[in-house]
Design a protein around this nucleic acid. Structure first.
Lengths: 205, 205
DNA sequence: TAGATTGTTAATCGATTAACAATC
DNA sequence: TAGATTGTTAATCGATTAACAATC
C-alpha cells in the first residue's frame, strides 16, 4: 500500500493541509487551486495535478470543499488517528519537543521521553517523566510505538537508530546533524537548522 | 553575485560539508565522489556535477582533498566568517536555540534573543538576556545583523516578518508553522516538525 | 605505465506547466 | 445559459545519470 506516488508529492500534502486549516479557521468553505497556490507559492496546475492522484476531490466551477479535503488528506497521510511518538534525548531540544503544544492538532503525541544521563532520568518535563533509555526497548514493544524523534548528539545517532530499528520503530525524525541510512521499510526525515542557515548564507552579500 | 546556480544544488552543499567534516575528523585526507556518495546516498555523478559548478575542485585519480574542499565550500556558502543571528521568541524553542552549542562550528552565533512577554524580558538564557522585542529594530541597525530565527506562534509570524524585513534582515529561518512569502532579496527557510512527521506517517501501516 | 577518478557531454528520466475539454 | 474551475493530456523544462576522454 506504500503506493507509487512520488515522495515529492507526498511532501506537499502537509503544506496543503496547513493552508486549508488556515482558510477553514478564517471561515471559508471552499478553496480553489488558485487561492491555495497563492497562499503557498505553488502553481495551481501543480496543486490540481497532485490532488488528482487521489481521486476527483474538487468540484468543477467551485474549487475544493475545505472540510472534505482536510479529512481526505488526513486519511491519505494516515493522521486521522493520533500517533504516539517517543523522544530520545532530554536536553533542551528533546524537552522542548516533549512540551510542544503544536503536535496534537496535526496527528501526533509525545508519549515518552528517554535519556541515558542519570541526572536527567526521573526529572519531570511537562506531564512526562524522563525514562531510562535502557527501558526504551520494553516500552516500544509494550506500547507498539512506531515513531521516534531523535534529539541527541551526532556521535550517538547511528547506534541509537540501530536500536530503534531493531525494536520495531519504522519512522524516525532525526535532529542529530548527521545523515543516516535506514533499512527499507524504515522512513527517516532530517532536521538540521545549520543546514538551512548555510543555504541562507549563500545568498548573503 | 547571487549567481544562477540552482537552489537545489546550493541545498546539497551543506550536506557535502557535513560529510567532509566527519571524514576529516576520522583522519582522512582525501574523499572520492564515490565515498561521499555512499555516505550521503547521493550518486557520485551528481556530486561531481554539483562541485564542477565551482571550478575544478578535485584531483583526477585521487578524489577531493578534504581540507581544501571544506574551505572552498565554506567560501562558497559564505560561512568563512561567523554570522550573528537574532532569535525572536524566548519560549522553549527559542531558548533551546539560544543555548544550542552546534551553531558556532557551522558559521553562526546567536547574539540576541527577543520576546514581547514582560515575564520573559530580562531573564537569562545561557549567556544572553532576553530583550524587549521593541528594541529589536535598534539592535539590528546598530549591530548590522542580517539573519533572524523565528520561534513564535504562527499567528504573529507575518507581522513580525514584515518588521524584520523592514529593518533590514535578509535571511530568515522560520519555525512558525505557516508559509510566508518574503520580498525579492529576502531568503527564507522553513522548519516545521509536524510537516516532516506527516510525511513519515504516510508510510505507516 | 597502469589504475583510479575527475570533469563534462549527451541521454534519460521525472517533474512542472500550459492548455483546454469536461462539467459543476 | 454564462462563468468558473476542475481533471487531464501533451509539451516543456530541468535535474539526474551514464559514459568516457582527460589526466593525476
Amino acid at each position: 500500500m506504500t503506493s507509487d506516488i512520488p515522495h515529492i508529492i507526498i511532501g506537499r500534502l502537509p503544506l496543503y493541509l496547513r493552508a486549508l486549516s488556515r482558510l477553514k479557521k478564517e471561515g471559508y468553505n471552499y478553496a480553489s487551486s488558485r487561492e491555495l497556490g497563492k497562499l503557498l507559492d505553488i502553481s495551481p496546475a501543480q496543486i490540481r495535478k497532485d490532488l488528482s492522484h487521489f481521486g476527483e476531490l474538487g468540484k468543477r466551477g467551485k474549487g475544493y470543499e475545505i472540510e472534505f479535503l482536510i479529512s481526505k488528506l488526513n486519511q491519505i497521510l494516515n493522521i486521522d488517528t493520533l500517533w504516539d511518538m517517543i523522544v530520545i534525548g532530554a536536553g533542551d531540544l528533546g524537552s522542548g519537543l516533549a512540551r510542544y503544544k503544536g503536535f496534537s492538532d496535526r496527528g501526533f503525541r509525545v508519549s515518552a521521553i528517554f535519556d541515558i544521563d542519570p541526572q536527567k532520568i526521573g526529572k519531570s518535563i511537562g506531564n512526562l517523566v524522563v525514562r531510562d533509555f535502557n527501558e526504551m526497548c520494553d516500552y516500544v514493544a509494550e506500547n507498539k510505538v512506531q515513531i521516534a524523534v531523535l534529539a541527541i548528539p551526532a556521535q550517538n545517532a547511528q547506534s541509537v537508530i540501530d536500536d530503534l530499528v531493531e525494536v520495531g520503530i519504522t519512522a524516525i525524525l532525526n535532529y542529530a546533524p548527521i545523515y543516516i541510512k535506514t533499512p527499507a521499510g524504515v522512513q527517516i526525515e532530517h532536521i538540521d537548522p545549520s543546514v538551512h542557515l548555510q543555504k541562507l548564507s549563500y545568498y548573503l552579500k
